[in-house]
Amino acid sequence: MCTLERRGQFFILTLTGVNKTDQEHRLNPSLISSIRSALAEVKSQAVDGSALITLSEGKFFSNGFDLRHAQVVGVKSGSNQAAIDELLRMVDLFKGVVADMMALPMPTIAAVTGHAAAAGLMLAMSHDYVTMTSSRSVLYMSELDIGMTLPDYFIALIRGKVGSSSARRRLVLQAAKVRAEDAVAMGIVDSAHGSAEEVVAAAMRTGEELTKKKWSGKAYAGIRVALYPEVCGLLGLKDVTVTPSKL
């Protein structure tokens, strides 16, 4: 599942897994609900100058949707269609996670210390900043390899966050497994570091620099939503006007 810890101005969200042998952090309804609950708590406790840092345990940041969970649902019902319907339900549920991230009233930083695939990569990219380890991580949009189109909000997030058409093509039309240095060159992540510890330290440094600004959380969230109109429109987030409390 996940845990949430507050350290001063920082909120630390950690994907923990159910146990030490289950640390792919596959996005099933239970984990999605756990993340959304944590983000709701972050939002309720946010003050100007807060920041969120998302971490993970083990060798995965997140390995995407829990296809095994969908398969179990299908087996129990005796219907492959039930498995497909459960996958589509997870796609719809995860939309709420991305919406929560995009509307969060603070800077957000993902420390990718393990592989991030498919919806797991979308979870990382829904943050404002991404740091990544070069020692053991790859980014991978696996949908083409498994014969599945991408949800509309995935495509919109990729268009909003990855500026180069060639980088987008490599990511989604070649299903490339992208290592950290290439991910930096493609504009998918902000920095690459040699170890997991260095990745987390870099994320914390970025957070410290941002929290010093003491920006208005409402203004920050409003500007973010306006910056990514396509994906935020699909997520049901509205562009709002925020004005200073004093002029």
Score class of each variant (00 low, 15 high):
Gln81Pro: 08
Leu234Glu: 12
Asp239Thr: 12
Tyr140Asn: 14
Gln174Val: 00
Ala221Pro: 06
Val138Lys: 02
Leu39Val: 03
Ala46Lys: 03
Thr243Trp: 07
Ala119Asn: 04
Ala203Phe: 04
Met204Phe: 14
Gly120Gln: 08
Thr206Lys: 15
Gly64Ile: 02
His25Val: 08
Ser164Trp: 03
Leu93Phe: 07
Pro107Phe: 03
Leu237Ser: 12
His193Ile: 09
Met125Thr: 13
Asp48Gln: 07
Pro107Cys: 05
Val73His: 01
Lys213Ile: 13
Phe10Ala: 11
Arg136Val: 12
Gly78Met: 09
Ser142Phe: 06
Gly217Met: 12
Met122Gln: 15
Tyr140Phe: 15
Ser77Met: 10
Ala46Ser: 15
Val73Asn: 00
Tyr140His: 15
Gly17Ser: 11
Ser30Asp: 12
Arg224Val: 07
Glu208Asp: 09
Val73Gln: 06
Gln9Leu: 05
Asn28Met: 03
Ala46Asp: 03
Ser44Cys: 05
Val242Leu: 13
Met101Cys: 11
Phe154Trp: 13
Leu139Phe: 15
Ala70Trp: 05
Arg179Ser: 12
Met148Trp: 13
Gly222Cys: 10
Ser30Phe: 08
Val72Ser: 00
Gly194Pro: 04
Ser79Phe: 10
Gln23His: 00
Ser37Asn: 12
Lys246His: 03
Leu139Asp: 05
Pro244Asp: 02
Lys213Ser: 10
Ala103Leu: 04
Leu173Asp: 09
Val225Leu: 13
Lys238Val: 10
Ala119Lys: 01
Gln81Trp: 14
Val200Ser: 07
Ala118Gln: 01
Arg26Val: 11
His25Leu: 01
Arg7Glu: 14
Leu237Thr: 07
Leu87His: 15
Phe60His: 06
Gly58Thr: 02
Ser126Phe: 01
Ile32Leu: 03
Ser165Met: 03
Ala221Thr: 06
Tyr153Pro: 06
Ile155Phe: 12
Ala51Lys: 01
Phe94Asn: 03
Asp92Arg: 01
Ser164Leu: 04
Asp182Gln: 14
Cys232Ser: 15
Thr14Cys: 13
Ala124Ile: 02
Met106Val: 10
Asp22His: 09
Asp128Arg: 15
Ile223Asn: 09
Ala156Arg: 01
His193Trp: 13
His115Cys: 05
Leu13Val: 04
Met106His: 09
Tyr129Phe: 14
Met148Tyr: 11
Thr54Phe: 00
Ala226Phe: 05
Ala192Cys: 08
Leu150Asn: 01
Ala201Val: 02
Tyr129Asp: 07
Gly163Asp: 13
Ala83Glu: 04
Ala221Phe: 02
